[in-house]
Design a protein around this nucleic acid. Sequence first.
DNA 1: GTCTATAAGATGATAGAC
DNA 2: GTCTATCATCTTATAGAC
Lengths: 195, 195
Amino acid sequence: MARTRGSHSDITGPRVERAALRLFAKHGYAAVSMRQIATEVGVQAGALYNYTPDKQMLLVSLMKTHMQDLLAAYEAWPKPVDPLGRLEAFTRFHLSFNSERPEAVFISYMELRNLTPEHFNEIAALRSRYERALVEILEDGVQDGIFQLEDARVTAFAIIGMLTQVNTWFREDGRLSRADVEALYWTMVQRLVSA
Amino acid sequence: MARTRGSHSDITGPRVERAALRLFAKHGYAAVSMRQIATEVGVQAGALYNYTPDKQMLLVSLMKTHMQDLLAAYEAWPKPVDPLGRLEAFTRFHLSFNSERPEAVFISYMELRNLTPEHFNEIAALRSRYERALVEILEDGVQDGIFQLEDARVTAFAIIGMLTQVNTWFREDGRLSRADVEALYWTMVQRLVSA
DNA sequence: GTCTATAAGATGATAGAC
DNA sequence: GTCTATCATCTTATAGAC
């Protein structure tokens, strides 16, 4: 059966999300109007409400998708069994995953304050699951006598903080390649745990 | 001579800046209206324009003041002459200064995208002066054979990234005191440069 | 210096035609 | 599924009285 003319729900839906992602990252959630998103997609503002109940849910959906993608991709990432190998896998995974979606990473950190408490807690829970994975690697390494560190939770924050910061300065056409950056940060992470 | 009744320029001015700082940090620059700021200060919206030509300059002024305060405070901070002592001074200064003004720190990083190119470059230049100070400490330490690291600029970014991240999780009533956090991070910074 | 009033336009969201 | 038209409200900024 032929499709109704002008019906593109399976095409327009993803385009709305991508446009919102791009514009929210560039100007901030509050600064972007539904009309701007509609213009970017090539439809009228009213048509957006076929894809989201309101502006807030558009943001929530972007952030939730990003955090779920992060967790799913990390679980699928090849991981050795020894703590040092797992720490290297985590380091390289984090740098690689984040470098491929700078906009979603930026939004997921930046726009937390625009979430209602319920949505905030949902995103925060996903984020802690990821952080918890690193804490466990560090604790295992300490137990095996391979790592030396004072506080696994604070060290995990420090590692994630320094790895995530890369997105603020890395440029594709800069002095260093992605491989250079990965190697430098893996060396620094090893030093941080005295491995 | 008696003051004109209702004239409070020396009191209201700072109150406008403080209200804007608080509200911009909480909700984001774009999400805050001049009416909200006026309500917080206790005046009508029109009165704000005695203290700022427009909303944009209110943001620029907050960010510029913060960066200049940062540089001035760092210059006044007691600094040893040896690289290791200077690195410790930088670490403790950064944690201490940032912990005292979380809102200004947040805004100065978060709202860069809302600046016109001219204002952005001005703020970015102040920021690099600060980063440059750390790079020089690291380079001096390498030259003296005290530090071992591959890339002084990337290491400086990593250190600043991990130190600045503290503001996102530290709570006054949490498990760790400020002194605990300073000690933990100073240990980690030393490890990062193999000192 | 602060007020009230207002200009000129943008905003999120909905209703109903096609 | 998309459009046009519209509502009610909010926005930044200014003018002029006090």
